[in-house]
Design a protein around this nucleic acid. Structure first.
Lengths: 142, 142
DNA sequence: GGTGAAAACTAGTCGGC
DNA sequence: GCCGACTAGTTTTCACC
């Protein structure tokens, strides 16, 4: 079923789109020596097979007052807490990224809040199912 | 200097673009009760003041064989290692995200590699400037 | 799988409100 | 600050190779 082949040109196109998704197919075509239509066909292929999942904008949370970013290691306190924690992750706007991990803790997540007091309030909620370890981001290098 | 006001409509537009940046200004306008041109003007404003930093694609690393994702806490071993580490972060394709943190360790980063052996090779490189603690992602929940 | 030309649509610019 | 009309550029859809 999944015998669709991805060649080096496809990867070049993907890379160009990751850098700037607003590039036109024509412009991309000049970089990879193809016409705009051929680029369009390959982009559609990448979408169909799920390599490209969607288009989005890179935005700056700090400009919207979301100045505090923190990395949290989560230690769930009981087996039953798992489902409640997952529901919490889904409903929380503060959690921008969350992983089930092996290693230290049960989950790891990255959160965004407007202020230290908002962070405090967030951790208060989290305490209902879990213990945690927090690191604050001083500078996002990448 | 920065007295540009961002209202609720701007935030709605931003949210719609984050979900799908390929929506046309016209379509967005129907959601927020504006014409396409007015949406275009607001989007340009958001770009000019730096809230929108650029356009990109969401893509699936697993479909390209980047199956292993790991979260690494970095403990630099000397003061002089900082600059070398930063250069390493810039040049490494495996590192997809990196933060200078306060709390545990000096840096925190998320990496993507194709296989456990590639992870091992990566950590070998890292050992030249730093000690580390690794957690593997089992399931990215968010 | 790629190209070339026409059709449909989109974003940017203008004057006007 | 927003709207309507126009222009330029873009994506899409063909038939053809």
């Amino acid at each position: 079923m999944n015998d669709v082949t991805i060649d080096a040109v496809d990867l070049d196109i993907l890379q160009l789109l990751i850098e700037d998704a607003n590039r036109s197919h024509k412009e991309i075509g000049q970089s990879v020596h193809l016409t705009g239509q051929a680029v369009g066909a390959r982009v559609r292929k990448l979408q169909d097979i799920g390599v490209i999942e969607g288009y989005t904008v890179r935005w700056n949370p700090e400009k919207l007052g979301q100045a505090v970013q923190a990395l949290v290691t989560v230690f769930l306190t009981s087996h039953t807490a798992h489902q409640r924690f997952r529901a919490f992750v889904d409903s929380s706007d503060e959690i921008v990224e969350a992983h089930r991990v092996s290693g230290e803790g049960c989950y790891w997540m990255r959160i965004r809040v407007g202020s230290p007091s908002a962070l405090s309030a967030f951790l208060e909620q989290l305490l209902e199912f879990a213990n945690y370890k927090v690191s604050l981001t001083i500078d996002q290098v990448k």
